[in-house]
């Protein structure tokens, strides 16, 4: 039995190992170095690698992101932390207009290898502007990759892959996962993952549920409840949201003929709509049913009963699946 690995420790270890492996890697952001990060995800890196490699910055997201871009096109491989994903709009110009376009606009003279780590997601009673899942804001930016791991082992393997990737990567860490502990090598102990590959984390014959990050755990819990009803879910952990692993979802749907895309974020214009469209275009004939479960088109509420009701958690998934296909599954 492998040792248990905590999600935040996985983030720290990936950074530690990549800082040690490649002296072009630098890591900076607000409170990440001496304080070790507000989510305690990066302790000890400053002591291990020194001020030139790991440093605290002013509260200046424009400068942090723009400087990461400028450093990347001059040979460094910066990893930055934007403390909450809700602050990403302040980093957007550097990510969208500068880093993500550089490879193409320069006619492939140079890539812009930056990793933007950011804590996202709701469920922590943080209110509307510290709880968002702003995937869709970045989903239609060519040249940008978006990664959102669900387990400690994946967090480590995917962050290492993101740091080694020559393209800008938005690396989203669901804040409800930081304290999650799982086997360090639960997925075969792969050290560096491949960005853009989904994984089937539960096999089932009746319905494919495609999702990411914390929602993967909700889907797995819902699957246990529904199994007692005789409904078998196949859960696909997308792991990467851009590029989407459409073939993996199509392969699953070919078996189950039904697709639920589960998104912790507003329904309208979300990434779930993109996945539904892609699967529809490529595998319409395989589909008997397809729908999305997301949040209402409202800001995330603060009050616990309101937030709990707002999020597509285990109970909402179970209820939605029973309502949608309970009667149709033999």
């Amino acid at each position: 039995m492998a040792d248990k690995l905590e999600f935040r420790r996985a983030i720290r270890d990936a950074l530690d190992e990549e800082l040690a492996r490649d002296d072009r890697v630098v890591f900076f952001g607000e409170d990440v170095a001496k304080p070790g990060g507000v989510f305690a995800a990066t302790p000890g890196l400053y002591d291990a690698h020194g001020e030139a490699r790991v440093f605290d910055t002013p509260i200046s997201e424009l400068a942090i992101t723009g400087a990461a871009f400028g450093a990347a096109v001059c040979g460094l491989r910066p990893v930055i932390e934007i403390m909450f994903a809700d602050f990403l709009p302040l980093a957007m110009d550097g990510m969208v207009n500068q880093a993500a376009k550089y490879w193409y606009l320069s006619n492939e003279q140079a890539p812009a290898p930056i990793v933007v780590r950011s804590a996202f997601g709701a469920g922590g009673r943080f209110g509307a502007i510290h709880s968002q899942s702003p995937v869709a804001w970045f989903q239609n930016v060519p040249g940008l990759k978006i990664v959102a791991p669900s387990t400690p082992a994946d967090a480590k393997a995917l962050l290492k892959a993101a740091i080694r990737d020559d393209n800008p990567v938005l690396f989203l860490e669901h804040k409800r996962l930081y304290s999650l502990k799982r086997d360090a090598g639960e997925h075969g102990g792969e050290e560096v993952a491949t960005i853009g590959e989904a994984r089937v984390v539960r096999s089932g014959a009746d319905l494919t549920v495609a999702t990411v990050a914390a929602s993967v755990h909700h889907a797995l819990a819902a699957a246990e409840t529904l199994a007692a009803d005789g409904i078998e879910l196949e859960v696909v952990d997308l792991r990467t949201l851009r590029p989407l692993d459409v073939p993996a979802v199509v392969a699953s749907v070919t078996k189950t003929n039904r697709l639920l895309v589960l998104e912790e974020g507003p329904l309208t214009g979300g990434w779930a709509g993109e996945l539904v469209a892609r699967v529809g275009e490529e595998a319409l004939g395989e589909l008997d049913d397809v729908w999305r479960l997301a949040t209402d088109d409202l800001p995330t509420p603060y009050s616990p009963p309101l937030e709990d009701d707002f999020l597509p958690g285990v109970e909402a998934i179970v209820a939605a699946v029973r309502a949608r296909l309970g009667a149709r599954v033999a």
């Binding site: 992101t65 723009g66 400087a67 990461a68 400028g70 001059c74 110009d93």
Partner: peptide, 16 residues
Amino acid sequence: GGSISAATGAALALQR
């Protein structure tokens, strides 16, 4: 402003 942030980042790389 893009030029300012890009040069700031370039200077970070050059310093390192």
